[in-house]
Amino acid sequence: MPAADHGTRHRTGRIHAGRGRRPAPIGPGYCLQPQGPAAAKPYVLLLGALRRASKVALATSAWHGRERLGPLRVRGEVIALDALLRPDEIRDPAPAAPAPARPRPGRTG
């Protein structure tokens, strides 16, 4: 599949919403809206289909020159896109961990 153009979305698959799947690292979320009258009908159809089927659609999108994969979810009356993080975007939490606590000499707890 060719790379998506700036701001375009392509639905690539569907999974059941809320199943016990291993969580993926999710980045920022975006609320989507149709751009113009021609996009309103497909948007409403996708919104209704996702709601009726209790499904999450997997889509690719391109923002800031980088293609991403992410789930399209129904949130209220809008479709939300959550960007999945790539391994190089996830920081190692070890440097942020606090140092182990050591008891001070002469004090008892």
Rank of each mutant, 00 (worst) to 15 (best):
C31L: 13
P2F: 01
G36N: 07
G48N: 14
L81M: 08
Y43L: 04
R73Q: 13
P103Y: 03
A4W: 00
A62Y: 05
I26N: 02
E77W: 09
R102C: 03
L81C: 01
L84T: 08
R21H: 10
L72P: 00
P100G: 06
V74K: 03
I79F: 02
Q35M: 06
L85H: 00
R73F: 01
K55E: 15
R14Q: 09
A97M: 15
A40C: 07
G13H: 12
A39M: 04
L45S: 11
P95G: 06
S61D: 15
G76M: 05
H64L: 14
H6T: 09
R19G: 04
Q33T: 06
Q33F: 09
P103G: 07
P42T: 00
G27L: 01
A17K: 12
R51Q: 14
R9V: 15
A4M: 14
T108A: 07
P98I: 11
R86T: 03
R102T: 12
A101H: 11
A83W: 11
A80Y: 05
R22F: 11
Q33E: 12
P71E: 10
P28W: 03
V44E: 12
V78F: 13
K55S: 14
L58I: 09
R14T: 07
K55D: 14
H10N: 00
W63Q: 13
G27N: 00
P93E: 06
A80D: 04
P100L: 14
G76N: 07
T108H: 11
S54T: 04
H16A: 15
V78G: 08
L58V: 04
I90K: 04
D92E: 10
I26K: 04
P42C: 02
R102Q: 12
G29Q: 07
Y43E: 05
A62M: 14
G76S: 08
G13W: 10
T12M: 10
L69M: 09
D92W: 05
K41C: 01
A24G: 04
I79G: 00
D5K: 12
P98Y: 06
A24K: 13
R73D: 06
R104F: 07
L47Y: 06
S54E: 12
A17C: 02
V44N: 06
T108L: 08
G76I: 06
H10G: 00
P98Q: 12
R104H: 04
G106A: 07
V44F: 04
G36I: 06
P105L: 10
G65H: 02
A24M: 13
P28Q: 03
V78C: 14
V56Y: 06
L72D: 00
T12N: 02
I79K: 01
R75M: 10
G20S: 07
A96G: 04
M1G: 12
R21W: 11
L32F: 03
R11Y: 09
L45Q: 15
V44L: 08
G70S: 05
R52G: 09
P98D: 12
R22G: 03
V78A: 15
S61Q: 12
R104N: 00
Y30A: 02
A40F: 06
V56K: 02
K55G: 03
P95V: 09
P28L: 05
E89A: 00
P71V: 05
C31S: 08
Y30E: 05
R52Y: 11
H16C: 10
L84A: 03
G48W: 00
A97W: 14
R86F: 07
M1P: 04
